[in-house]
Design a protein around this nucleic acid. Structure first.
Lengths: 345, 345
DNA sequence: CTGATAAGCCGAACCGGTTAAGTAACGAAG
DNA sequence: CTTCGTTACTTAACCGGTTCGGCTTATCAG
């Protein structure tokens, strides 16, 4: 139980408490000699700043907040989040910041959490994920004056600092890939339409479908494995030769559905996943996917939040464009299919 | 920016700051009338306690800590963690406690984090996962006097409060299941041997194998999908008719390996997974698994930590025994196999 | 009517830092 | 030699709560 305070350090060094504070915080106002002495004594006594005291006077909590408005169920299903959190952490650790993580039921509860954190001064800034179209969190964060970095397209961020990946380009890459393989009938299993990124993909999908002269159908889901499986079963009735998924969890679930119907991947159906987690590499066949460095993404986002706190201008920052990684699940459609479109289900 | 303090409330109520504090904290020392008035005014002004100030004077941080000594990669692969964290959160939210989450590289860094948290008084208690055999964290936590609840078997907890699930019983259930189906040659793809729970399963596996007169082989891995796939490939050389996995991620990876070798599940090989996440239900065939309410587990652990802070005796608490859920991946061995043990690979 | 007891409240110290304002010493410029 | 500006500190207020000793006042037994 080390109860070492700066008062103790001051006593031992024969200087005032204030001087010790200046020395420890690397601020001007003390001579190099004194600073060195203070640092040495602090190290000897294994002094650690009391975060509460520092937070109280300096109005800094050295904590970032992250609220996830998802069910624990979804969170454990989706490999995405833990990787993202891990990336965030890696940067926080460098600054010895902590992450306050809160899992809530819905957007309302998320807003309440922001209000509470702002009032309590529990966090210095927040990372906002799952951006919506016309997101209600943006005006609230503005009003609270809570520093934030949004994870999503600048078109959704309404001027707040954001980090994004180019979903439009990725969608184009996916459709050009399947089109170049000779596919004409495409199905898309999408996430919830209220999610901004899904909305952007919706636009990109429609435009690319027209440009490439494809026929297409889109089914929106809640991103869960069960919904992905159900949607796959539905769209298969339309005999698409390729299915593009908005996440990899649904793609894996879809693969099982296809196999259970005795269809072959990729001979009968080509599958393309989004968010290239390990899942895509442990199935048989392995899944072609739009690959995404989720860990790096999280790291970049927290770096940006530090920048914002340091007073940087809120410019949108493109982190990357998901890269298409072709694997076993995509190939030319089987030649038998185009001539005789026999019902399979 | 609400800057409402108890001083303001005191002014408006015409009482002293101290009285307000007593009233708000539901402590004796104020009359019912005054208390009611204070509470009303506090509600009107939307007063929220400043956590830093409270922490500084009351030496409580209203935060629990959780350190995960895993790579971001593993964390995003393993569905387990996010579900566990979600469960922890659900209980913390009820007490308006926060969770400080830290992802570190190894046990050494984890110990450093505990020391730092203890010195800074950043957390009121910690939840310790991935218990080891002779875990070095236990003496450190004892010395630091940091309240903790360990997630793991009492045999590993050395007297500290713990919450556990009965892995021995679960392992028995798994082996009795495959034995009753008529399997004789079993392989086990286990986690890292230094993990306490893996060690316990090792013991249970060996004993059950002898009791049921099975032949068996065990391969330890790092719990990753890649290692699970590699180990599966290896053990298949010994022609087991059933494989039992220590987590579901490796089981899914193993399934793909089996399928890639043109073996059928369950006809040629029966598979049993541990930790029944969604993964087990989205494969084809679906996986028989030892099912585990990970979310509830997390919730129970944090409830115990609250109990410990309230002064409860550190009794081990059995949360549950994983239940075997038979699905498509387990069945009687194909009759052709026992008579003519033809090499398959 | 007196003295003891307790409830209700006040004032102030305290937690452990940060930081604005003030001061003493010193060197350079006028 | 005075004046001004730095540098290197000290002092003390402050952040927003909690908590403890002590002061009033009401209650009640004797």
């Amino acid at each position: 139980m080390s109860r070492v305070t700066i008062k103790e350090i001051a006593r031992r060094c024969g200087v005032s408490q204030g001087a010790v504070s200046y020395a420890l915080n690397n601020r001007p106002g003390v001579s190099a000699a004194t600073r060195a002495r203070v640092l040495r004594v602090a190290a000897e006594l294994e002094w650690v700043p009391n975060t509460a005291a520092r937070q109280l006077s300096a109005a800094r909590s050295e904590t970032f907040g992250l609220v996830l408005a998802r069910t624990p169920q979804t969170l454990s299903e989706e490999p995405y989040f833990m990787g993202f959190v891990g990336g965030v952490e890696s940067v926080l650790a460098e600054h010895s910041y902590a992450l306050a993580l809160q899992v809530v039921a819905d957007l309302g509860a998320e807003l309440a959490t922001y209000r509470k954190w702002a009032a309590e001064r529990r966090v210095d800034g927040v990372i906002v994920v799952d951006l919506r179209v016309g997101d209600p969190r943006i005006p609230v964060l503005r009003k609270l004056g809570l520093p934030a970095v949004l994870v999503g397209d600048p078109a959704l961020a309404e001027g707040l600092p954001c980090v994004w990946t180019d979903s439009t380009a990725a969608m184009n890459a996916a459709l050009e890939h399947v089109a170049s393989l000779g596919h004409k009938a495409i199905a898309r299993i999408a996430g919830p339409p209220e999610f901004g990124d899904v909305w952007i993909r919706d636009q990109a999908f429609d435009i690319a479908v027209r440009r490439l002269a494809l026929t297409a159908v889109t089914r929106h889901t809640d991103y869960s494995a069960a919904a992905g499986a159900a949607a796959t079963r539905e769209v298969l009735a339309g005999h698409p030769t390729a299915i593009v998924y908005d996440n990899d969890l649904m793609a894996v679930a879809g693969l099982a559905v296809v196999q259970a119907l005795d269809l072959r991947v990729p001979d009968d159906v080509t599958l393309v996943a989004w968010d290239d987690s390990t899942l895509c590499r442990i199935t048989h066949p392995t899944l072609t996917a739009l690959s995404h460095n989720v860990v790096g993404y999280g790291a970049e986002v927290s770096r940006r939040l530090f920048d914002v706190l340091a007073g940087a201008q809120p410019q949108p920052h493109l982190y990357s464009t998901p890269q298409l990684i072709p694997r076993e699940s995509s190939a030319r459609p089987a030649p038998s299919v185009p001539p005789s479109p026999t019902p399979v289900v």
